[in-house]
């Protein structure tokens, strides 16, 4: 399936400050876009606008294909064991084998541990498991590398590559550099006011 995400002359306002203006963006299947910019330049807001969770101050967004969002909130019930917390989303998404996904993300030993006992990095990997299970062609990743150790960072890059190679598209807001071939870059500061 061809996935596509595009935005025309986007502007974003938070409070009485316009963060960016006149931003055009077009991403299609098989591409990954890295959004860079210092803290507070509006990376998270841009991703939320692209996801349709935030109304842009101006401009419009359109997309073909489902959207999966990974941000700093894992959306997993803290008191449930990881397997059960993931199972809730798997049931909604009709995901296939949770075990396989957990294996892939090195979560298999943690599957019976309540989510609130997981460390920051483990929680991030758990959120990635949720994202993988969703099987959405459009990935919006907000700081996917923060809080992760070196091995896990490599895993995120690997998963992103595979997702893009499999016909998906990916928009990543990250302060850290990403080792992904063919990665396009968008410096949000250029659109700042």
């Amino acid at each position: 399936m061809q996935a596509r995400l595009s935005a025309k002359t986007l502007a974003c306002r938070r409070g009485d400050r316009v963060l960016f203006r006149g931003l055009d963006l077009y991403v299609e299947s098989g591409t990954a876009l890295h959004i860079t910019g210092a803290n507070g330049v509006g990376k998270t807001s841009l991703l939320r606008i692209l996801a349709g969770l935030l109304t842009p101050f101006a401009g419009e967004v359109s997309h073909d294909g489902d959207i999966g969002l990974l941000d700093e909130r894992p959306a997993l019930d803290p008191e449930l064991p990881l397997a059960k917390a993931l199972q809730f989303w798997a049931a909604l998404d009709g995901a296939q084998d949770l075990r396989e996904i957990a294996q892939r993300l090195n979560l298999i030993d943690l599957i019976n541990v309540p989510v609130r006992y997981l460390s920051t990095g483990q929680r991030k990997r758990a959120a990635l498991a949720r994202l993988l299970g969703q099987q959405a062609p459009i990935w919006l990743l907000d700081e996917p590398l923060s809080g992760l150790d070196e091995a896990s960072r490599g895993l995120v890059e690997q998963l992103t590559k595979e997702h893009v190679a499999g016909g998906g598209l990916c928009v990543i807001a990250s302060l850290q550099p990403l080792a992904i071939e063919g990665l396009q870059r968008l410096a949000l500061e250029e659109f700042a006011q």
């Binding site: 996801a51 941000d71 909604l92």
Partner: peptide, 12 residues
Amino acid sequence: IELGTFDQLRLR
């Protein structure tokens, strides 16, 4: 809201 559950449901 804090967990982000509503946002994830909205995306679905």
